[in-house]
Design a protein around this nucleic acid. Structure first.
Lengths: 175, 175
DNA sequence: TATTGTTATACTCTATAACTATA
DNA sequence: TATAGTTATAGAGTATAACAATA
């Protein structure tokens, strides 16, 4: 095993501290905006956004839970809330009666549309406003790099699930 | 108000998505490690770490709450938990009897010391392992830039404190 | 009166385990 | 048996408002 140095370098420390601070403040601001503009929690927003971007505007509950690093019961809870507000529907899958397919409704899309401008505004003004175009490019590159690294090396606890038969689709394309 | 474009550029979008994903996964992993290694929540860890780095290992409750973007009652709650575990003490300030000074104890420092190696290990292997040294430098620079920007433009809600000025009577409704 | 901090309380979120039903 | 999902439930965390003490 490759041993990582037991200490962070000063540069790493600075990067880590600044990263967590930005992350925390941005998250806080985004949550506030979503709550005020559409009565959505951050997770609910992610849920709806993911459904909207999924083919057919729908996805299996389990896949949603996997993507959002969520427990299934937690997802059920949030889906119930959104269903009560008619922002999504749930129905058993025709292929596999065990599965539940969640689908975003028109009302759900409306809420997303209502919330989005303010969301962009927050992200834009807090995260990007002070950055030069090149900085943004560099940030995108570095974060994408790390993101890929994290997908490739899941945090141990998330590994226990997908065992033998249905291996998970990874975003890496193999020739 | 400076006018920001109503849309994020593709690069900004990529940067934002990757950033939030990394932030979320890293936070999750860090919380897990802190919980398992020292039964600390992330906020409690930040609290202790901040006290440790403060002069005298102590700080006023209000200042702690400000720094951590925390409500006072929430801070009181966490401080109570830590005090019960003897990881910090609370005592009224000699200068101003209204204030409470929280101070980290030796036991608190021990817990931090116990938790730290694993913390470093998580951050190191998740955030930095896949990055070249130059990437880390760039990340530190960009995040510090944004962090400074955020400090300079607090998210509105955190602002309404220091102003002894009466600039906000205008929008206040009275019966 | 304003500030500091605590308390009382209500609410949201999350996770674990037991359970149902399908496969 | 294994998987998908829900339910029951318990616990942590947060915020708001009322409050007491001090300035």
């Amino acid at each position: 095993m490759s041993t990582r140095p037991p200490q962070l370098s000063p540069t790493e420390l600075a990067a880590y501290f600044a990263f967590t601070e930005v992350s925390s403040l941005l998250r806080h601001a985004v949550e506030k905006q979503l709550r005020e503009a559409g009565k959505l929690s951050y997770v609910q927003f992610q849920l709806l956004a993911r459904l909207r971007d999924a083919p057919g505007g729908s996805q299996r509950m389990t896949d949603l839970a996997d993507d959002l690093v969520y427990s299934r019961s937690g997802l059920t809870y949030q889906a119930q809330l959104l269903e009560q507000r008619r922002l999504l529907t749930r129905a058993p899958s025709p292929e596999d009666e065990r599965s539940t397919i969640a689908a975003i409704t028109d009302e759900g899309r409306e809420v997303l549309a209502k919330v989005f401008p303010g969301h962009i505004e927050v992200v834009s003004s807090l995260l990007f406003e002070s950055l030069a175009e090149q900085d943004v490019e560099v940030l995108a590159r570095v974060m994408t790099q790390v993101s890929g690294h994290l997908r490739a090396n899941p945090p141990r606890s998330a590994t226990r699930k997908r065992s033998s038969d249905s291996a998970r689709r990874v975003s890496t394309r193999e020739p």
